[in-house]
Computed example of a mutant assay.
Amino acid sequence: METSAKTAANVEEAFINTAKEIYEKIQEGVFDINNEANGIKIGPQHSGGGAAGGAGAAAGGAAGGGCC
Rank of each mutant, 00 (worst) to 15 (best):
46 H>D: 06
44 P>W: 05
39 G>E: 07
17 N>E: 15
32 D>T: 03
54 G>V: 11
20 K>H: 06
47 S>T: 09
31 F>N: 05
50 G>D: 12
48 G>F: 04
50 G>K: 09
45 Q>T: 15
29 G>D: 01
17 N>G: 12
46 H>M: 11
20 K>R: 08
24 E>F: 01
36 E>F: 06
55 A>S: 11
44 P>E: 14
44 P>G: 03
30 V>K: 11
58 A>S: 12
19 A>R: 07
52 A>T: 14
32 D>C: 03
16 I>D: 10
53 G>Y: 13
21 E>F: 05
40 I>H: 05
55 A>K: 10
23 Y>F: 14
44 P>D: 13
40 I>E: 01
42 I>G: 00
55 A>R: 05
16 I>A: 13
59 A>L: 12
27 Q>Y: 07
24 E>A: 05
18 T>C: 11
30 V>I: 07
17 N>I: 09
20 K>E: 13
47 S>D: 08
47 S>L: 14
45 Q>E: 09
46 H>I: 12
25 K>H: 09
52 A>W: 12
57 A>K: 01
27 Q>S: 01
46 H>Q: 02
48 G>R: 01
33 I>T: 15
31 F>C: 01
20 K>V: 11
24 E>H: 00
48 G>Y: 07
37 A>D: 15
20 K>C: 07
51 A>D: 12
42 I>P: 03
19 A>F: 07
32 D>W: 00
20 K>P: 02
56 G>E: 09
54 G>T: 12
60 G>N: 06
21 E>M: 02
21 E>Q: 10
29 G>S: 06
29 G>K: 01
32 D>N: 14
39 G>K: 06
59 A>H: 04
56 G>V: 08
50 G>C: 08
54 G>S: 13
50 G>M: 08
35 N>F: 02
45 Q>W: 05
47 S>A: 13
54 G>C: 14
17 N>Y: 14
26 I>E: 07
26 I>L: 07
44 P>H: 10
44 P>K: 14
27 Q>I: 04
23 Y>S: 11
55 A>C: 06
52 A>R: 13
31 F>V: 04
60 G>H: 00
59 A>T: 09
26 I>V: 15
45 Q>R: 13
56 G>N: 10
22 I>N: 02
26 I>G: 00
37 A>E: 15
36 E>V: 03
29 G>M: 01
17 N>S: 15
28 E>C: 05
